[in-house]
């Protein structure tokens, strides 16, 4: 390519400018096309509680040291059982909140007496690590009112959620950011 000296510079420059313009149009237009025609809005990650098998991967595969997935409680579905299988061991020694009777390894479930024979169970989200042990207990014997959800003020909403990559039951889905939870609903 030693014709450098004989070729007028403007020709090369013009070609470069044309290519540059095409490139710019391509990148900008492509991105705009992908964004524009279908704008259901931003998406965030969430767990479909119907598909979740509470395998425990949520507790350990999150990029956060303390997972963004935590247990939530749909109170309207709860039976307010005296013997809650999400709170107590499958065969509790006694129905007290002593450590030997309690299922949750981090003690994140709070049991409160409401009135005979009802007890209220709430999740202390500071302690919950999303292991799903109580979810299994509640789903197996009870109403399934305890289940795992991504807590969105913790979730970084990674490009591809690293828990989703490790989810065995394809329970992780992208949902509209405007309605970022998949609540089990009482209708």
């Amino acid at each position: 390519m030693s014709d450098h000296e004989t070729t007028p510079i403007p020709r090369r420059g013009f070609m470069r400018a044309a290519a540059r313009a095409a490139c710019a149009l391509g990148i900008g237009g492509g991105a705009a096309y992908l964004v524009a025609p279908r704008t259901p809005g931003e998406r965030v990650w969430q767990i479909d509680p119907e598909k979740c098998i509470a395998c425990g991967n949520c507790a350990t595969y999150c990029v956060l040291r303390e997972s963004a997935v935590k247990c939530v409680h749909s109170f309207a579905m709860c039976g307010y059982c005296e013997l809650c299988t999400g709170f107590f061991n499958p065969s509790p020694n006694d129905l007290t909140t002593a450590a030997e009777n309690v299922l949750c390894p981090t003690g994140a479930i709070v049991r409160r007496f409401v009135e005979d024979p009802y007890f209220e169970y709430t999740i202390d989200q500071n302690l919950c690590i999303g292991c799903g042990k109580c979810v299994k207990g509640c789903k197996m014997f009870g109403n399934g009112s305890l289940y795992l959800q991504v807590i969105h003020d913790r979730c970084l909403n990674c490009n591809q959620c690293s828990i989703a990559a490790a989810c065995p039951s394809e329970a992780w889905v992208r949902v509209p950011a405007a309605r970022p939870h998949l609540w089990k609903k009482v209708t």
Partner: peptide, 16 residues
């Protein structure tokens, strides 16, 4: 007695 609000019900997605 009124049913408590489900934990994190208020937590919005922080994407937008």
């Amino acid at each position: 007695y009124s049913l408590p609000v489900t934990e994190a019900q208020g937590a919005p997605a922080r994407a937008d």
